[in-house]
Amino acid sequence: MTADLTEVPSGRGVEPRPPVRREPPEEHPKLPLRDRLTRLDVKFTPYLFIAPFFVLFAVIGLFPLLYTGYVSLFDWELGGDEHPFVGLGNYTALLADDQFWNALFNTVSIFVLSSVPQMITAVLLAALLNTALRARTAWRMGVLLPYVASLVALAIIFSNLFGKQYGLINTFLEGVGLSPVDWQGNWFASHVAIATMVNWRWTGYNALIVLAAMQAIPREVHEAALVDGAGAVRRFVSITLPLLRPTIIFVVITSTIGGLQIFTEPKLFDPAGGSGGGFSHQYQTVVLYLYQAGFQDFDLGYASAMAWILFLVVLVIAAANFFLTRRIASTGESE
């Protein structure tokens, strides 16, 4: 009668035992189908919702990226009957290729000529737009207009303006007694011309991003500085700039990525219409050379190697920019 009780100890002083999991799990009492579906729903639906991005990214982002790396190891001519494996041959050939270094130099030169003035103008423009202007919204919309206009139309109009013999800019220069500039032939002039197109398009866009960040700066900080007797310039340098830092870093990095991949402007700037970037490649950028190698010479292996080197260059320069901007924007104050 009490045997059962002694066999199953219970009560005070007895260690509670966790309930024994019954094996195998199939013996688990079956949940209704509807409940099981609900469980699956809760578990997997979130993944399903974010899947489109990752599936698309895998198909049109990650796969090409990796496949480009694979192709770059072969002597892969488009339409060729066989693709012999050359290992790192394309990379060593590329590093010994004068035209590639020239293209890299042009890219960096155009990038510097466009990004530096563009960032400075964008911040100053944002500061202007942040003041109490009449018809503020109209001004703010206005700076975005160049961004809305078609890039191709823009490039064609600018190429006309920068025409050597009949271009408006040279006509103007001659009109005020200066000598005309060979916007096509001279490498520096051609870089300035292309950088002008980039600046025209992107300055307003970046100014708006900076403006948004500027408006997020708490008014109290400015007021406190005002009470302490800080002038407008001092407040801009000591308050606005440091607090804009994250935004400026963002803008600099996106413009680095975009600037190092510049293609349409130099492509359309060439009156001969090719991908050479001028008659002696004086403004051929890396992407333009990549396009020429891949789709004019059909040397896909070489073009792929170039794409990977460019990828690494963008990474390195973006990282360098990140640290540089962090230093500059913090104006030496420690946090």
């Binding site: 190429s159 006309n160 025409g163 050597k164 013999q165 009949y166 271009g167 009156p271 001969a272 219409g273």
Partner: peptide, 9 residues
């Protein structure tokens, strides 16, 4: 340069 805008002009 043949077929460029300047050539047309």
């Amino acid at each position: 340069v043949a077929f460029s805008n300047e050539w047309n002009t």
